[in-house]
Write a protein that binds this DNA or RNA. Structure first.
Lengths: 196, 196
DNA sequence: CGCCGAGTTGAACTGAATCAAGAAACGTGG
DNA sequence: CCACGTTTCTTGATTCAGTTCAACTCGGCG
């Protein structure tokens, strides 16, 4: 759910390698494309670190429409905090968009790590703070940006994900319909045409 | 920014008292209504705990329109993580909606506490996780709820805040115009009328 | 070859925004 | 304690961004 391969650098150079070392004795699991690690109603208290592949975290409303809250490619953590932290039943779904490999981590394991490992404590704190910052930015964009502006921001922020998921999922993430995104892209293409 | 007086209970009974004890030797400041502790462009690395009063965290877009990301009444923490954690210039504003009293906390102080105080470490972690959960729920609502549904959810979740802020700020938080909120409320009133 | 999911395009529709004008509530100073 | 200006809230008329529904294209794949 939050990046590790970001600009956040601690004393050591690559948080990524640090994380992998720290999690090396957790259980690794393979999750083939289209399979779930979480469905609505589950109460399963795990965090996952994505080593390979791409997952999505989403809800389904009463009309059956999906709303993607987050994509999680390699190097990201993903979990449903409602079930992982509070042991409540989840309202959300997590499944794999590509064949993936995950490290499964219990909340207790993280707490223990923060107690025993200074460096991890600070990294964990940074990651959580950064995740909050990212979510706030997204809320700010949902409150103040048009569909076009949100799309352009997505392209800039997640150019890699853009290429790995179908367009209708990007639309779902942006909070618009696939048709609308298609039109937004068309208009942008026309604008670029004119410039030349 | 995140609740302390929530259902999150640790071993001890009231997290609120625990927090107050822990922060008792931080600097307390008074912030009169309408005064700011953060403006766009500031890079000021502090967290605040609201002891009394009510603050808001918001952005202003190019058209001069305000977008409220969060209200912070007594018992909540508030900060701009972009400046508090990363020392970047902030894109947001924080000001007081009522005469308020705050405890000012440095990031270093929090890190030290998490190192030296087991109980605080776990509480801090819970609070951050819970804050993330709340932000995700808000994003989910912005993606899938109508204006009316979001308003009803707000009334249910923050009945206290509803009574303490002008209606146009609630509209701003919900991502609609004051005029729209007025109409939503009118329709709800008419519906309730019919029932009787 | 034929099917199916993804993307595009069009036409009609709608929820919410905008603009404008009044009414009500609020607080500040005389 | 009232009068006056300012802010807040409401209401109406109009517009617009984005939705909905439906038809069609395209590319992949059994």
């Amino acid at each position: 759910m939050f990046q590790t391969k970001s600009k956040i650098t601690l004393s050591s150079n690559t948080p990524d390698d640090f994380i992998k070392a720290i999690l090396s004795n957790c259980t690794s699991i393979k999750l083939p494309k289209s399979e779930f690690i979480l469905k609505r109603g589950d109460a399963q208290s795990k965090f996952y670190y994505v080593q390979k592949g791409l997952l999505r975290y989403y809800s389904i409303d009463e009309k059956g429409k999906e709303h993607i809250l987050q994509f999680a490619p390699e190097g990201w953590f993903i979990s449903d905090r409602q079930s992982a932290c509070l042991n409540l039943k989840s309202d959300f779904f997590i499944d794999a968009l590509e064949d993936s490999e995950l490290m499964m981590i219990s909340e207790a394991y993280i707490i223990n790590l923060t107690k025993s490992n200074q460096e991890f404590l600070e990294l964990n704190n940074k990651l959580l703070q950064n995740h909050i910052r990212q979510l706030q930015n997204r809320i700010n964009q949902l409150l103040s940006y048009t569909a076009e502006e949100r799309y352009l921001e997505f392209v800039k922020t997640y150019p890699d994900i853009l290429l790995r998921v179908p367009q209708w999922m990007v639309a779902s993430y942006l909070g618009i319909t696939p048709e609308s995104l298609s039109r937004v892209r068309k208009e942008l293409a026309e604008k670029n045409q004119k410039k030349k």
